[in-house]
Simulated scan of single mutants.
Amino acid sequence: MRIKKKVASAVSALAMTTGLLAMSGAVTTASAAEGCNTDPVLGTARSATGARGQLFELRYHGSGNNTCAWGRVTNGAVGMHVWVDRSHDGGRTWEPQLGIRRVDAGTSVHTEAWPDRNGSLMRACGDSGDNTAITCTGWY
């Protein structure tokens, strides 16, 4: 009986993980379909220094109501993460961890670009690895 419960728990966890991955994949595809990319860079809107000296940046290009933004970590290390949060109500609530990326090699990585339209605010966030403190730039 105990083995059946463990198998059922494992299957349930796998189904939840697969569902979450499918959801994040759908979100990622939507941003790319909206015409955003990371080139050309017009500038860094906000930056913040993480617990281990890494730099998190919210970068952008475009103008007016046609702006795209993405997060980047530099001076990082393998295992660190970066992502973008987007808010449509001034930062009271937000869509968390859009395009989360992990530094797998080297010292930097960036997320894909996300549309920043209709008065939404964006910020870049990241950590020093799994289960470490999160650092975020200011909203822009």
Rank of each mutant, 00 (worst) to 15 (best):
G43A: 09
N37M: 05
G76M: 05
S87K: 04
A48M: 03
K4D: 13
T93C: 07
A105Q: 14
S63W: 03
S9P: 00
V7Q: 11
T28F: 06
A105F: 14
G106T: 13
T67K: 15
G91F: 07
G79W: 05
G43V: 11
N66W: 13
G43P: 02
F56A: 05
N66H: 12
A22W: 04
E34W: 00
F56C: 06
S9K: 15
T49E: 14
G106M: 13
E57Q: 15
L55N: 04
R2Q: 10
M122Q: 13
R117K: 12
Q97S: 13
K4H: 05
G79P: 05
G50D: 13
R101T: 11
P40C: 03
W83L: 04
N131S: 12
G126A: 08
N118T: 08
G64K: 09
A133P: 02
G62V: 08
M1N: 10
C36N: 00
K4M: 07
D89H: 12
R86T: 06
L21S: 10
G43M: 07
A15N: 08
I100V: 12
V11R: 09
D130Q: 11
T38P: 08
G71M: 07
A22V: 04
F56V: 04
G53P: 01
L55Q: 11
G79N: 10
W94G: 03
V11C: 01
K5N: 01
R102Y: 03
T111Y: 06
N65I: 02
S108R: 00
G126Q: 10
R123N: 02
E95L: 12
V78A: 04
A48S: 12
G19S: 14
K6F: 06
K5A: 09
N75I: 00
N65R: 02
V82Y: 03
A51E: 11
A22C: 00
A124V: 10
S12H: 01
A13E: 05
K4T: 09
G129E: 00
V78D: 05
E112H: 15
R46Q: 15
T135W: 02
R59I: 03
M122S: 07
A30F: 04
K6Q: 08
A48C: 03
R92H: 11
A51N: 04
T67D: 08
V82M: 02
N66V: 07
M1E: 13
D130F: 07
T49M: 08
T93Y: 12
V82F: 02
G79Y: 08
W94V: 02
E112C: 02
T17Q: 15
T74Y: 06
M80G: 05
A51R: 01
W114P: 01
H110A: 11
D85V: 03
D85K: 02
G50E: 10
C125A: 06
R52E: 15
R92K: 13
Q54F: 00
R46S: 09
L20G: 14
A26H: 11
I100M: 13
G62K: 11
C68L: 08
S9A: 15
W94Q: 10
T29Y: 11
A77M: 11
G91S: 10
V82D: 04
A10K: 15
P40K: 08
Q54T: 01
K4F: 09
T18F: 11
T44M: 05
G62I: 08
D130S: 10
E112F: 14
T28A: 12
Y140N: 15
S24N: 14
Y60E: 08
G91K: 07
G126W: 06
K4N: 12
G129P: 00
I100S: 14
R86Q: 08
V78P: 01
G35P: 14
W83T: 05
P40D: 07
N66P: 02
